[in-house]
Amino acid sequence: MRVLLVEDDKKAAALLARGLGEEGFVVDIAGSAEDGEEKAFVADYDLIVLDWMLPGKGGLSLCSQLRARGVATPILMLTARDALSDRVSGLNAGADDYLTKPFAFEELLARARALLRRSELTRPTILGIDDLSLDPLTQRVTRAGAVLNLTQKEYAILHMLLRYAGEVVSRARLAEQVWKADLLAIDNLIDAHMSNLRRKVDAPGARGLIHTVRGRGFRLTSEEDQGA
């Protein structure tokens, strides 16, 4: 599970990130609302942990903007403001839950897991297109009933392509989300992994599903792609 932590207090952010990391979460830290907004639109997160008091544009404003732009990721708001009116404001801005500081890490973890369980109920358990399927819970990938043995990076690439099936996924977006790196640093690496993934998914005799869209990125579709 991938978490975006928007917190300007570097010490608090480091402690929370370490604790969540020990519980199996992958955590990205944003030190401002602007940084958090950019990250939320570049990568896909399962949960956003958002501090109310941020420099410049506050957490409440960021929460409202994310919801206005269609980001449905569960948001857990952290704040020292414990008045009823503040809690109502946070929830009305689009937060799914509200945790008052100071708090025990165990409570934050329990609330985070509860939000993730609630979110999973609205997500399709199995992702698929044509005769290709991927189970995010077991990470089992099959094509025409046969199990595909993918590396961790190949699985991450395919998962992303399936989540945006029919849409073009840019090379830069793959670099950011799968490798957390700049495209220039790993451009050739993307090509190598994509080539290996194609050999496994689009085996000889099978309909080609992974298409290269010149100058833009990659698209997963069962339709013939004119940009390939």
Results as ranks from 00 to 15, higher is better:
residue 142 T to K: 10
residue 5 L to P: 06
residue 182 D to K: 15
residue 209 L to E: 12
residue 137 L to H: 00
residue 105 F to N: 08
residue 160 M to Q: 03
residue 2 R to I: 05
residue 145 G to N: 09
residue 87 R to L: 13
residue 151 T to G: 15
residue 77 M to F: 13
residue 168 V to T: 07
residue 52 W to D: 13
residue 64 S to A: 07
residue 215 G to P: 08
residue 71 V to Q: 05
residue 34 E to I: 06
residue 136 P to H: 02
residue 62 L to C: 02
residue 77 M to V: 09
residue 191 D to F: 01
residue 153 K to Y: 09
residue 157 I to K: 00
residue 78 L to I: 13
residue 178 V to E: 01
residue 15 L to S: 15
residue 215 G to S: 13
residue 172 A to C: 10
residue 96 D to P: 04
residue 17 A to T: 08
residue 195 S to Y: 07
residue 157 I to M: 03
residue 176 E to P: 00
residue 163 R to F: 00
residue 129 I to D: 04
residue 15 L to N: 09
residue 18 R to A: 12
residue 81 R to Y: 15
residue 34 E to N: 05
residue 134 L to T: 01
residue 131 D to V: 10
residue 155 Y to K: 03
residue 123 R to F: 12
residue 2 R to M: 05
residue 30 A to N: 07
residue 52 W to V: 11
residue 215 G to M: 12
residue 184 L to I: 02
residue 41 F to L: 04
residue 18 R to K: 00
residue 75 I to E: 10
residue 189 L to A: 13
residue 227 G to Y: 01
residue 150 L to C: 02
residue 52 W to G: 07
residue 30 A to W: 10
residue 12 A to W: 01
residue 43 A to M: 14
residue 2 R to Y: 01
residue 97 D to G: 03
residue 147 V to P: 03
residue 124 P to T: 14
residue 117 R to T: 14
residue 227 G to A: 04
residue 50 L to S: 10
residue 35 D to M: 12
residue 7 E to R: 10
residue 181 A to V: 02
residue 204 P to Y: 05
residue 196 N to D: 14
residue 16 L to C: 08
residue 95 A to G: 00
residue 147 V to D: 05
residue 105 F to T: 14
residue 30 A to I: 08
residue 167 E to Y: 04
residue 210 I to H: 02
residue 33 A to I: 09
residue 168 V to M: 07
residue 142 T to M: 11
residue 87 R to N: 11
residue 185 A to M: 14
residue 164 Y to P: 04
residue 14 A to P: 05
residue 197 L to F: 11
residue 89 S to N: 07
residue 215 G to K: 08
residue 157 I to F: 02
residue 205 G to T: 01
residue 167 E to Q: 14
residue 36 G to W: 06
residue 107 E to F: 05
residue 177 Q to L: 11
residue 144 A to L: 06
residue 160 M to Y: 00
residue 45 Y to G: 06
residue 216 R to G: 05
residue 206 A to W: 13
residue 50 L to E: 12
residue 217 G to E: 00
residue 169 V to N: 06
residue 95 A to M: 07
residue 144 A to I: 03
